[in-house]
């Protein structure tokens, strides 16, 4: 399970990615990240197939040391290119008229890139979100997101797994309950990003803790 490891592209891979970057104004994605900062990210999509799913909303929140900077969170709705799958509407709660107010996808992605910068990304089942985002970004940017990605269920697995406990329940509700974190209403991308951020805060090695 490759997503269980922290994915950090090695030096030469980053060099190669950097050469392939088609738009120089996004060189900041390769700048050294600010210390003790991360971005927790979540997308709502029209389906669960990363090859076809369309993004209809993105939320992200910065983690700065002990703080989850909710006040300056990032949250956008995106106008989809086609019709919404009626089956997905009850899940994300966004109707055609809701997303019609949204941004065009390229604008939303440009704002997202400015928000995350070179910070490592954090998420729950982040692989899916990144796959959908990269499918849109690559034709335009020339590369996938170069940011390191941290899968919180992976952090959790590493903490919990042992010879005596080889099966770890990685459902979000189970993780939150086990870590004694509050559960926020699901399928609001900001809440999902917040919950991932809380899990990350609880599990990461905290340089300030004594």
């Amino acid at each position: 399970m490759s997503w269980l490891a922290h994915f950090r592209p090695s030096g030469w891979l980053r060099q190669q990615q950097r050469r392939r970057l088609r738009r120089p104004e996004y060189a900041f994605l390769f700048a050294p990240p600010p210390a003790q900062e991360w971005v927790s990210l979540d997308c709502e999509t029209t389906s669960l197939d990363p090859k076809t799913a369309e993004i209809i909303s993105i939320a992200a929140v910065r983690i700065q040391g002990p703080r989850i900077a909710l006040a300056e969170h990032f949250s956008v709705l995106i106008r989809p290119s086609g019709a919404l799958d009626p089956k997905s509407i009850p899940i994300h709660g966004l109707r055609a008229q809701d997303v019609a107010q949204g941004l065009a996808l390229p604008d939303a992605l440009a704002q997202l890139l400015a928000f995350i910068g070179s910070r490592p990304l954090v998420g729950y089942y982040l692989e899916f979100d990144l796959a959908v985002l990269n499918r849109q970004l690559k034709p335009w940017l020339g590369i996938n997101l170069p940011n390191p990605a941290i899968e919180v269920s992976g952090l959790y697995y590493d903490k919990m797994v042992s010879a005596y406990n080889p099966e770890v329940d990685l459902r979000l509700a189970s993780i939150l309950a086990q870590l004694q974190l509050p559960t926020l209403p699901r399928h609001d991308p900001l809440n999902d990003a917040l919950m991932a951020a809380m899990i990350f805060q609880k599990l990461r090695k905290n340089p300030n803790s004594n």
Binding site: P66, I68, L70, A71, L194, N210
Partner: peptide, 13 residues
């Protein structure tokens, strides 16, 4: 609500 942040502090901090 628009000015709220969250902070996490492990025991002892």
């Amino acid at each position: 609500a628009s000015q709220l942040n969250l902070e996490y502090h492990p025991a002892g901090q």
